[in-house]
Design a protein around this nucleic acid. Structure first.
Lengths: 255, 255
DNA sequence: TCAATAGTGTCTCTTAGACACTATGAA
DNA sequence: TTCATAGTGTCTAAGAGACACTATTGA
């Protein structure tokens, strides 16, 4: 082909409508730790495929909308604009994953602080919280339960998405700064340890955890302390991104 | 909506053609270590967007084709059927990443043994090898060079894909079994260390590396030895997946 | 014998886990 | 004073890096 052909002529000949295209969606796993238990926010389906089952909130990607922007929009629409750390997880593209039509979905993990989690629940009453049974093994299928203990069967391949999200989060928890996305601006070292323990499903050694976190250089002591405790108040820290590690902004590349 | 409505009636009303859809493609980063240098296989574009630049081999995802199947097909079509370990990396969905039209691309990493790399080069003459300048820092933009040292500018956002792939590979090299995908069936511990050093861009401590690898329980000594060396021949090992860790099959979930 | 690399023994240093200890605020 | 938790000092165990040593092959 001649490289002198005009771009307009080229575009005219390049016909994107020649082939049927899959639909592209984003699905969000909205994760918080209310009461120290990993909990996700689900919508109960009232429509045909998997009616009655619970599904991750999602939506189709607009033709002029970036993937990350679609994830942010779905977060806004389905969770009442709650602030969250969004991070792309994995793209699920099995042919029959949705019986209606071919839908490729890009799964995102959205981490909510306790306040944001409560706010999302308040503003979007359709969202049902489901606690993740943290099988300590870390492998195998994940099961989700309602507050009353009833099992919440998930629609489509969403159990797979939840399992992958939890594995990924566990894997990068100690080497990245994602853990701070689940905490408020000011927090104590015990709260940080609680976050790690809730996600990993294990107990951690206190002195070792404190040493590791403080040696990372990510924690800025504020000189302020908890209030309202009936025991010795703990010092409040702030997360300060380290120049050597990425600052874990919203919409960072998932890795 | 009534849950007694028939599925056929539901599907008829659900019109997937209501909205314009992005095209979905897969792009493959074919990586090998010829001569101990991380090298990828690229196609030089002769067409309009970024003509003259080099691009990752890719192709559109068929309407009845799973994502992983599309990646395997592109591997077969563009690399002459070379065997490779395929692993999904990340999905790139910026709106203007391709000026022709909206294309969302799912990036895959394909790891080739030295033999598979040579075979791909032989069977697909259009593929140009490009060595990745392993900036020891690990961050920052990646540059790719031809064998003669000339810079190979990449098309689209492919430099971003290459950088992400290398970061991911480095991150999971020591905790997963991906490294074995770059080695033949039988290999020496030195060859395994060479793979790790090439990918990480650093030198590793020999006794510590041997201890770590042997303690993993992934290496099965064969009792056989190298031949043709002019020095003491090294023992040949075989990779044996550990039941506690996933066996790293082709098309495993990227994480 | 020498050259070159395989493979190992051992020392040190760093870091995690364990555990007990001191510190501090409220009832 | 007691209680509950914050925060620390120290011992031990495990693992990595450093370095030197022995082992084995071909020339």
């Amino acid at each position: 082909m001649s490289r002198t052909e005009s771009e307009a002529a080229f575009l005219a000949r390049y016909d994107p409508a020649d082939y049927a295209r899959p639909a592209v969606a984003v699905d969000l796993m909205l994760l918080g730790l209310p009461g120290g238990r990993p909990t996700i926010l689900l919508l109960q389906r009232d429509r045909h495929p998997h009616a009655g089952r619970h599904a991750l909130p999602g939506g189709f990607v607009g033709i002029d909308e970036a993937l990350d922007a679609a994830a942010a929009r779905v977060l806004h629409e389905k969770a009442g604009g709650a602030r969250a750390h969004l991070e792309q997880l994995y793209t699920f593209g099995a042919v029959e994953r949705d019986p209606r039509m071919r839908i490729i979905t890009v799964a995102y993990l959205a981490l909510l602080t306790e306040a944001a989690f409560a706010e999302a629940l308040a503003r979007a009453p359709a969202l049902h919280p489901g606690t993740i049974a943290a099988s300590s093994a870390g492998e195998g299928p994940v099961t989700v339960h309602a507050i009353d203990g009833a099992a919440l069967p998930l629609a489509f391949d969403h159990a797979e998405i939840v399992a992958l999200a939890l594995r990924r989060l566990r894997g990068k928890l100690d080497t990245s700064a994602v853990g701070f996305s689940l905490l408020p601006e000011l927090f104590t070292l015990r709260q940080l340890q609680d976050v790690h323990e809730a996600i990993l499903g294990t107990r951690l050694n206190k002195p070792a955890f404190r040493r590791r976190m403080l040696d990372r250089g990510w924690l800025e002591p504020t000189g302020r302390f908890e209030t309202g405790t009936s025991y010795r108040p703990a010092e409040l820290y702030r997360f300060r991104p380290n120049p050597s590690h990425p600052p874990s902004p919203t919409l960072s590349q998932g890795e």
